[in-house]
Structure formats: C-alpha cells, structure tokens
Simulated scan of single mutants.
Amino acid sequence: MALSVTRERDVDLRVESVEGGGGGLSRVEQGLEVEFDRATVVRKRRSVGARTDRGTWVRIERRQLSRLREHGWDGTECAEALTDIAKPQWLKSVAWKDLTDGAMWRADETTLLPGHPVGTAVLATGPQLPEEWWRDLNASLDALAGQRTARIATPDTELITQALVNRTIQAAFPARADTAIRTWVPAHADLNWANTTGPQFCLFDWEDWGNAPQGLDSASLLGASLAVPALADRVRRERHRDLESRDGKVMTLFVFAKFAGPNAHPGDPRVSVARQEAAQLIQELQAA
C-alpha cells in the first residue's frame, strides 16, 4: 500500500487566518499558559507576534519541513547563550507539527522590547537616534562577531554558503572579481531598521543568526539605508572596519545584488546608488 505524502504549501501569515488551524493563537495561548492582547497582534509573511497578559511578547513562526532539514529554527532560543548584546531575553517556547500541512510551528516567548522598531526594513527618511544608540549598535555587533557558534546563518531564510555568495553576486554584477570569503563570524543575518528599536537600541528577531562572512550585518544595514544619504554615510562611518574589509566589500556586493540586479524594482530609490557603488567595489576587489 502506498504511503500518503503531505504536500507542503507556501503560506503568507499576513493574509491567512491566525486564530484557527495548525498555528492558531488560541493553541499557543494554551501551550504557553498566556492570553494575547489581540490589539497588539503584528502579522508578517512567516510570523505572527503579540503581547501577553504577563507582560511578555510571543512570536509564532511557521516553516516548511523541508527547510528545517537544512536550517533548523531554534535561533531565538540559541541566541540566549550570546552575551554582551542588547536583545530581548528568551523565556519559553512550544513547537508542534501540523500533520495536514507539511509544516512545523514554533512559538517563542521573550521579554518585551525597550521601545518601538526604528521603522520599516528599508527607510525613506532619516530616524532621530541618540549617540547612545550608535554606541550600543557597535558594541552589540562587535560582541556578536567575537563569539562562537556551530550555527550557519540563513539570511532571507537561505543557508549562506560560498556558492550562494558567488551565484548571487554574479547574477547581478557579472564583472569578474574574486568573491572568496576568508573570515566567517557570528552574525544576526537579518539586520534592518524593522528589527532594531529606538531610542534605546535593541536587536531582535534572531531566527536566522549564525556564522556568516564578516560584514554581512553592516552591509545589510547599509543596504537598508541607501535611500537616505546622510543615514548611509553614518552607517559607513560607524561600521567602517567591517565595510572596508575585503570580506565586507564582498558582503556589500551580496546585499546590493539582492535589490539592484537586472530585475530591480524601477521605483526603488536605492538602485542607482547601489549600482554605482557596486562598480567601484568590483574595481577595488579586482585590484586587491
């Protein structure tokens, strides 16, 4: 007799019901023994979050089983072992398999953020951030890079490898340059303006962290800032040691390639700047 195979399907939690089904809010409430404030629910493509009645935050994530084989998904829990980084404290989690949908669900409970997200992932106007914010950003990223882990980062939920770096850059910027990575360090791997808080700095959403080429986080924040020249310049100054390193230049090409390649959105104000900077970076890598 043939065994039935559960067919995986892509789900966008911004439009799917989050009350019932395999990953319903009520199921998480029961598992974590909390009640959600429905007025605080935040819905993203692959996650849903809400504040609880005990003054904590719960993030619920759905991932296909096929992705778990390669990526894992306990990043928030594993990040609790990291030290000297401004981030929420992990408290508890529950996980379960949806037998009808080919997916795994996980809910992580953490302490509340000290403020609101600085903005959307990519900014169009400059935020008003105190000097202490930049100091804490630098301290956290430097502390993270100095630690050790066996995890491999998954930016955009894709395991980062040398082959991925080469393929991504070549597809967008086909000029020949040596993009071999020399130094791998722990990285958040999803550093953007929607995953940081202000005016007090805190870095959250640690699902994809792990070892990555040096400079990935700094390049990611730069890429999210290019539409605001003064903000991009500030990121360059603050993270110059990463961005001016050889691997940092490769990572900047990698980040820019994701939004400034041949299929770039015509309305993205970052594209022309990214392409100009990419041409300069390729020349520098060719000359090195």
Rank of each mutant, 00 (worst) to 15 (best):
D242C: 14
G146H: 02
R106A: 08
G261Q: 10
R234H: 15
Q89A: 12
R275S: 06
S17V: 03
L32W: 10
G223V: 04
G261I: 03
R270E: 06
G248N: 03
S47G: 04
L65I: 14
D233L: 12
I85H: 01
Q280D: 12
W73M: 11
C202G: 07
T149C: 01
L144H: 01
A278C: 10
A103S: 15
A177G: 02
P213Q: 02
F254T: 00
G49C: 05
D98G: 12
P199C: 12
K258H: 09
R69N: 11
H71E: 13
A264T: 08
L91D: 03
P114E: 11
G248E: 05
V228E: 03
G261R: 13
R182W: 00
Q30T: 14
W193P: 07
I181A: 00
Q89M: 03
I152R: 15
S140H: 04
G126Q: 15
A153V: 02
G248A: 08
Q128L: 11
G215E: 02
L216S: 06
A145D: 06
F254R: 02
L216D: 05
I152W: 06
A163T: 15
D37R: 12
T154E: 04
D178L: 00
E16I: 07
A150S: 11
L159S: 14
T161M: 12
S93I: 01
A278Y: 10
W57Y: 15
R14F: 05
R46I: 04
H116K: 14
L144M: 13
E284S: 11
G215C: 06
W193N: 10
T76W: 01
D205L: 06
D217G: 09
L99R: 14
H188I: 03
E277I: 06
A50E: 04
T52K: 05
E35A: 15
L32Q: 13
T120A: 09
P229E: 03
R236F: 04
A143L: 03
R51T: 13
E158C: 11
W206V: 05
A224I: 00
K258I: 00
A153I: 01
A194I: 08
R106Q: 14
E132H: 12
G210A: 08
V94D: 07
R9N: 10
G72D: 09
S245F: 04
R54A: 00
A145L: 01
S218R: 11
Q276W: 06
H116N: 09
D190M: 00
T111F: 03
A153T: 00
A177I: 02
Q170D: 13
Q147W: 03
R151C: 00
R7P: 01
L226E: 07
G261W: 04
V58E: 09
A175N: 04
W96N: 09
D10G: 08
Q64F: 00
L285V: 01
E77A: 13
R27C: 05
R234G: 09
T161K: 13
V42R: 14
A194V: 04
H240Y: 11
I282M: 09
E19I: 14
E277T: 08
G24L: 09
R167K: 15
I181Q: 01
A189H: 01
Q30W: 10
T52A: 07
W96P: 05
P199I: 10
E131V: 12
T157F: 14
A139S: 13
G210L: 08
A180T: 14
E244S: 15
P262Y: 07
D268I: 05
